[in-house]
């Protein structure tokens, strides 16, 4: 059993004009796909070959001799989670229990959004910003390269990819504009609410 590339949960042009078809074509078809291919090559004929993605990630995390395994496995997981963190006509303020939880843990939606923007803007180099659940409380974090919440005792609720390949075609160097667009037009709060459970 090998790891497979999940289909995008929407059409490649579904997030335009905010994220272009060209970006999704490369990001899903080349970057995400390459992580899947690299991982399958690495786990072939090993005891991880039949393991599920989360098991692979957790079993190689923190082992410098398995950095390639970790980077590719975590990037497969991160990208799938990122596609689901967005939807056409998404963004804006969430509603219901998720909003109440955000208000309880951050004070207000605006405070959450400010912290999320800061984390995503200041992640130096390649990486991710996250809304996570840790010890029953929501918080904003950032991780470098392939690093992800599940190896830090946190449950991922929502993510934004801030590797330059995620936004360079559409936004060039203007990462803050990409982050604002993500929050205003793309966030899939239904997915986040389902992760909150």
């Amino acid at each position: 059993m090998a790891v497979t590339l999940p289909a995008l949960p929407y059409a490649k042009n579904a997030l335009a004009p905010h994220i272009s078809e060209e970006t999704l074509d490369f990001h899903h078809g080349k970057h995400h796909n390459a992580y899947v291919t690299n991982l399958n090559n690495l786990i072939k004929d090993s005891d991880l070959d039949s393991a599920d993605l989360e098991t692979i990630i957790k079993s190689v995390a923190g082992d410098p001799s398995k950095a390639g395994h970790f980077n590719n496995a975590a990037q497969v997981w991160n990208h799938t989670f990122y596609w689901n963190s967005m939807k056409p006509n998404g963004g804006g303020k969430p509603a219901g229990d998720l909003l109440k939880k955000i208000e309880a843990d951050f004070g207000s939606y605006e405070e959450f959004a400010a912290q999320f923007k800061t984390a995503a803007t200041t992640q130096f180099g390649s990486g991710w910003a996250w809304l996570v659940l840790e010890g029953g409380k929501l918080k904003v974090t950032k991780t470098g390269n392939a690093d992800l919440p599940m190896v830090h005792g946190q449950k991922a609720i929502l993510t934004i990819d801030v590797w330059e390949h995620a936004y360079y075609v559409d936004f060039r160097n203007r990462r803050p504009d990409y982050i604002a667009t993500f929050l205003d037009h793309l966030v899939n709060w239904d997915f986040a609410a389902a992760n909150l459970g």
Binding site: E164, H165, Y168
Partner: peptide, 12 residues
């Protein structure tokens, strides 16, 4: 080898 050095012409 930051992506900003090559992405517009070479993408991935």
């Amino acid at each position: 080898v930051w992506e900003h050095a090559y992405y517009l012409r070479y993408q991935n």
